[in-house]
């Protein structure tokens, strides 16, 4: 397998060892990502507790339709990503390209919906700053919206990085770079994409759902 031999870096003994290292490296990286997001989640929890009423009222100014559609889009994209990883493990490069392109399409759709949602907030003067219109009975709504934009913005940056990573994977697969033995990059890209998805799974209830029960 000349292809496989090329894939083994010179400082590793075996492909297995290289695979293990890459795998553990990705998980460690995801741990740092969790800590990175945790500062914002911490801020959200504290201020939601301190300014409960403001957060409750302000969160009703988010658009649950957009949020729900985006949740559906991201969850489905995780499915297509998983199928892509599965295809890579079986060495079916063509299928890998197909599934990853669909995943990228979903990611792009997510960004379009997010953009439309941001634009709506812009029109309604809900972006913190000079043009922010205070909401009656919710004096700290501006903190809610600040956190909303910081958290979803940081998440959107991760989605865009994901689109870049997945594009590279599709390109590599199109050049027949993966086989049954060597497919680690696709697996790792998959892990990253599921992480992006999971962050949203936490953001969705915190922003759109939690205060709507009353």
């Amino acid at each position: 397998m000349p292809e496989t031999k090329r894939a083994l870096a010179e400082h590793f003994e075996t492909l297995e060892q290289q695979h293990q290292a890459a795998w553990l490296g990705m998980w460690t990286f995801l741990a740092t990502e969790i800590m990175f997001f945790s500062g914002l989640f911490m801020g959200y929890i504290i201020y939601r507790h301190t300014y409960f009423q403001s957060f409750e009222i302000a969160s009703r100014h988010t658009n649950i339709i957009y949020g729900t559609v985006n949740t559906a889009i991201l969850l489905t994209s995780s499915l297509t990503m998983a199928l892509g990883v599965h295809a890579a493990q079986e060495g079916r490069n063509k299928a890998v390209v197909r599934y990853i392109l669909i995943t990228i399409l979903f990611a792009a759709a997510f960004m379009v919906v997010k953009g439309a949602e941001y634009y709506e907030h812009f029109k309604n003067h809900e972006i913190p700053g000079q043009a922010f219109h205070p909401i009656p009975q919710a004096p700290q709504a501006v903190i809610f919206f600040y956190l909303y934009f910081a958290m979803t913005g940081l998440h959107a940056v991760h989605v865009m990085v994901g689109i870049g990573v997945l594009s590279v994977m599709a390109w590599l697969a199109a050049r027949q770079r993966f086989d049954r033995v060597y497919n680690t990059p696709v697996e790792l890209a998959g892990l990253y994409w599921h992480f992006v998805d999971i962050v949203w799974i936490f953001l969705y209830p915190l922003i759109y759902l939690i205060d709507r029960h009353t």
Partner: peptide, 20 residues
């Protein structure tokens, strides 16, 4: 990473003029 997000929020607060 916690320092990274903290400094990021501090920088945003300075640039944006408001923050948490």
């Amino acid at each position: 990473p916690v320092l990274a997000i903290t400094l990021l929020l501090m920088m945003l607060e300075r640039i944006w003029g408001l923050g948490i």
